[in-house]
Design a protein around this nucleic acid. Structure first.
Length: 483
RNA sequence: CGGGGUGUGGCGCAGCUUGGUAGCGCGCCUGGUUUGGGACCAGGAGGUCGCAGGUUCAAAUCCUGUCGCCCCGACCA
């Protein structure tokens, strides 16, 4: 019908109308989360949590493959511990939640609900590290953290969120730096290959680095509204924490040395990135690698052939369910069209329709979520075709996101042009920067764009005068407005 | 924390200006007919209108206070 397109989206605000409302429609209507009674806190619903479980499984494998082991540290941190590292406390103090009472009595020392675990973990590491033989110490934990944010948004910025945080200790600065970069590489590989989100890897400026770190590296992704999102960070902590927490070891040369440390993390924010990078006006588009449901079978039931169709659908579901995360939608009382829309909204990569026509033809109709393309697949070829189709969707989503990023990464040659791009087109802007924090700060004030990172990869254009002050010589850096 | 908005069945809203004891759509339940892109008919359940005071014979409606949530800024994964 003529208004079919309108019908598809009647419950979803189009992205072009109000991106932020679209995002909220997505997280609520796809049942990823629901608002909880406390500000900024959300219940992650099964469909959303399944994404997180897939992220955990795939990333955890990579973390372990690089020699790290999982452990768990306490939720509560004595306030005095957090206060040991000056920059660290300054960075986090404004957003910590404090426990002042326990068992109905005032606590003698207030407890911080961890906003990050450097302090508590370092206090333990001080006990565990004695000798060079104890190093490197490579530990990761999956947990929740609490940051009392003023402005919250589901998955992107919540008062409590889930993440993993790796904390490692090394004998030398070189080793720590190598670890920091290795984990950044792990993140980039993971985000690009599993989440199908292209990222720029780079270093944060002094102004943007982690509170207490020597250097912070980041992977930055571009959302489809042209704003950037920090998708993961890896910090070289230097010896800052080792000195205040007295993490010392006796080296091979008999001398007592402070250790070198790193920390690195990604959070449930990645789910927000998945939504904003791949989603369209019909709903989510989940990359097959992390999709809670990779394949959905929708039987097309007509009175005459009901039993036959259902029987075949069940057989196929059983068979294909061995390999894929698969759902057979047998619900009665919903029309096929309704189910199509529902599963499209939930972003299931591949839909298999089985109806009387398909039975006659001896196969199923497969429909790709990314392109909408319909193809007939003979039953005998399912095991062979499905992996190819899903691989094609995974790669297709990445390719689309990469193309979008290319089209929305612009070079600015003058500050006027820079301002215009940021104001009207958004996206990444590559421009020379002299390295002065003052220029960075003024650009931020005037355009709300920040330096997302100083890219690790070589960028065409080499060094040049600063986009803002016109002086000095600096590399090209990525600017953007960000989440 | 500043600016704006908003709280009424599960969801989205109307009712408030001009007080009279709550309504619509969707969803939900039951039965039936349907089912290749959000089906239809019939019947039904469900709300002391965020909370607390006040005014009044009477408050969803007027007044005061308070809390939550959302959006836009400043700060952060």
């Amino acid at each position: 019908m003529a208004n079919v397109d309108k019908e598809f989206v009647k419950e979803i605000t189009p992205r072009a109308v109000d991106f932020s409302q679209w995002y909220l429609d997505m997280v609520l209507k796809a049942e990823l989360m629901d608002y909880a009674p406390v500000k900024g806190c959300m219940a992650i619903r099964p469909y959303g949590y399944a994404i997180w479980e897939n992220i955990q499984r795939l990333l955890d494998g990579r973390i372990k493959a690089t020699g790290h082991k999982n452990a768990y540290f306490p939720l509560f941190i004595p306030q005095s511990l957090l206060q040991k590292e000056a920059e660290h406390v300054e960075g986090f103090a404004p957003e910590v939640a404090l426990v002042t009472q326990g068992g109905g009595e005032e606590l003698t020392e207030k407890l911080v609900v961890r906003p990050t675990s450097e302090a508590i973990i370092c206090s333990m590491y001080a006990k565990w590290v004695q000798s060079w033989r104890d190093l490197p110490l490579l530990i990761n934990q999956w947990c929740n953290v609490v940051r009392w944010e003023k402005n919250t948004r589901p998955f992107l910025r919540t008062s409590e969120f889930l993440w993993q945080e790796g904390h490692t200790v090394h004998a030398t600065e070189e080793e720590a730096e190598a670890e920091t970069l290795q984990m950044l590489g792990v993140y980039k590989d993971f985000v690009e290959n599993e989440l199908a989100i292209p990222v720029v890897a780079g270093r944060k400026t002094e102004g943007e680095k982690f509170a207490g770190a020597l250097r912070t590296y980041t992977i930055e992704a571009l959302m489809s509204d042209g704003r950037a999102l920090q998708a993961g960070t890896s910090h070289n902590l230097g010896q800052h924490f080792a000195r205040v927490f007295e993490i010392q070891f006796q080296d091979k040369d008999d001398t007592l040395k402070y250790a070198w440390q790193t920390s690195w993390g990604v959070s449930t924010r990645l789910i927000g990135a998945l939504i904003m990078v791949h989603g369209d006006d019909r709903g989510l588009r989940m990359p097959p690698q992390v999709a809670p449901v990779q394949v959905v079978i929708v039987p097309i039931i007509a009175k005459k052939s009901k039993e036959e169709v259902l029987a075949k659908a069940r057989v196929l579901a059983e068979r294909l369910g061995q390999t894929w995360r698969l759902e057979l939608d047998e619900r009665e009382g919903y029309s096929p069209g309704w189910k199509f829309n529902e599963w499209e909204m939930k972003g299931v990569p591949l839909r298999l329709e089985i109806g009387p026509r398909d039975l006659e033809n001896g196969g199923v109709t497969a429909v790709r979520r990314d392109t909408g393309e319909k193809v007939f697949v003979a039953e005998a070829e399912l095991e062979q075709r499905l992996p190819l189709l899903l691989k094609g969707i995974q790669e297709g989503l990445f390719a689309q996101a990469l193309q979008f990023r290319r089209e929305n990464t612009r070079q600015a040659v003058s500050y006027a042009e820079f301002k215009e791009i940021i104001a009207e087109k958004r996206g990444f802007v590559l421009a020379h920067w002299c390295g002065e924090p003052g220029c960075e700060e003024k650009i931020k004030e005037e355009t709300r764009a920040t330096i997302r990172c100083v890219p690790l990869e070589e960028i065409d254009g080499g060094e040049g005068p600063c986009i803002f002050c016109g002086r000095g010589r600096g590399k090209k850096v990525y600017f953007a407005r960000s989440y």
